[in-house]
Amino acid sequence: MADLLKVKDLAVNVEDKEILHKISLTVNKGETHVLMGPNGAGKSTLGNALMGNPQYEITGGNILFNGQDITNDSTDKRAKLGMFLSFQNPLEVPGITLGNFIRSALQQRTGQHIRLWDFKKEMRKAMEILNMDPSYADRDLNVGFSGGEKKKAEILQLLMLKPSLAILDETDSGLDVDAVRTVSKGVEEYQKSMDGALIIITHSTRILESLKVDHTHVLVNGNIKAEGDASLVDKINNEGFEEFLK
């Protein structure tokens, strides 16, 4: 099977300080990877660097997506190629409704006009999965949304934009039990019906309960300290990161 994402010896600086040191990672089509680690380990840095945030400077290594080197590509190009990042703190954008935003993003990505009727129908379906009130489609993007609503809106975008790889950056943080369940339901839908690959960045394990996990990576101080299958998640769940900090 061809690699979907291949990260090789990636080193990343933030404000002239090296945060990630030679990280390597391979994600195949449809696989679910979990990236765990204590606070400050560099998990979000990896997410941002993969998506090409200009504030994160890649100083070494490269990123291949579907065999194509995207290390120097702009963020929008990566998105158009099928990458998606769910933000830890989604930004508020007054004046653009959630619905219009997703529709424009879809049109730009496909270069085709999308009929409003079809779009609305699909959007309603996705919102149902996420227990979202349909009125949110007409509200300004993330403006005045609660923490949980913002995260749902991110997953809604995931379901609508249908990327082949989604990076979820702490999507479960700050959510109550019910909201986590709803969000996982959306992610599950993405796994199943779109055969989507995932990198789930988290420091807890709640979001993983109902998801099938293929690989687990433990990131500590900018290095991958351990790798394993789903059982590693359980181990960390029981024992914490103690062992990897040594």
Binding site: V93, G95, I96, Q108
Partner: peptide
């Protein structure tokens, strides 16, 4: 970065945001 991560290029984001300001 947030807008670009959803697949719009810089010019498109600027146009969209300009319109959004007035729309709001």
């Amino acid at each position: 970065f947030y807008m670009e991560s959803r697949g719009m290029n810089k010019e498109e984001v600027y146009e969209m945001m300009a319109k959004a300001r007035i729309d709001s």
